[in-house]
Design a binder for these strands. Structure first.
Lengths: 132, 132
DNA sequence: CTAGGTGCAAATAGTTTGCAACTAC
DNA sequence: GTAGTTGCAAACTATTTGCACCTAG
């Protein structure tokens, strides 16, 4: 798959892709930590470069979940929309089917194609909502 | 309004709030530039501190629109959802009413209260979609 | 007068880039 | 062998913090 592009399959790339899959969604730094547990010497720079590459290949995507760093997640499994609680920072996922009507309406009315993989909703989760 | 909190009304604060209203949505840096046109000496630090303050007071909010810096916009006018084209970077707005069903469903099914002001959808706008 | 604000400089955090050493193919 | 990769250090950009000076009330 990499080879078909004239690119090389290296240990680092495998580890990083694996880490993204294991973590589900993670910042570059979290990926770095995960990878380091297996191969200590891997540099953060490589994480960035590889994530960018994997994204180009369509193997992962990223979303911006409030706090600075972007969050990467594998593309393979079904699309999912992130729900981020701004109080407890928990990230959960929802079925994109719920957003279907909205997405269809936007495409029809304005010709805007929503990228579901990058979609994130901020708000307050049940637990935090109860407290307040 | 500020005074009721024991805070002071300064020229900088007025200018910054005004800039956010004028710009509609802008990054801290854009606000800085706008403010500087009127009062050259204002420091970027003050922009950050004031935006944070204004957010606490509920006068502005911010959203994360892909690229690093957050985007601030006034809270006063009706809520609006941002549509960000990942190709041409254009930011437009949509009527939050379109998202109502989704929001209601989430509240009912999972108790998740979506913060509409922070909502942003990424994708491809009509113009860029045509080209590809 | 004095608590709250501001500017400045330095510290941090996150990300990118140049380059020499390294290795998959 | 060689082009693609990586690690390291340095450069950047975005944001935060400490502190002395300043000013609205």
């Amino acid at each position: 798959m990499l080879r078909s592009r004239g690119l090389r399959l290296t240990a680092q790339r495998q580890l990083i892709l694996e880490a993204v899959h294991d973590l589900g969604h993670a910042t570059p730094e979290q990926v770095h930590n995960a990878v380091r547990e297996v191969a200590a010497g891997v540099n953060i720079t490589t994480i960035y470069r590889t994530l960018e590459l994997l994204e180009e290949l369509g193997l992962v995507t990223h979303t911006h979940l409030s706090h600075g760093s972007p969050t990467f997640h594998p593309v393979t499994d079904d699309q999912h929309v992130h729900l981020v609680c701004r109080s407890c920072k928990a990230v959960s996922e929802m079925d994109p089917a719920l957003a279907e009507p909205l997405i269809t309406a936007l495409a029809k009315d304005r010709g805007f194609q929503v990228d579901i993989g990058h979609m994130a909703l901020f708000g307050t989760c049940e637990r935090c909502g109860d407290k307040s």
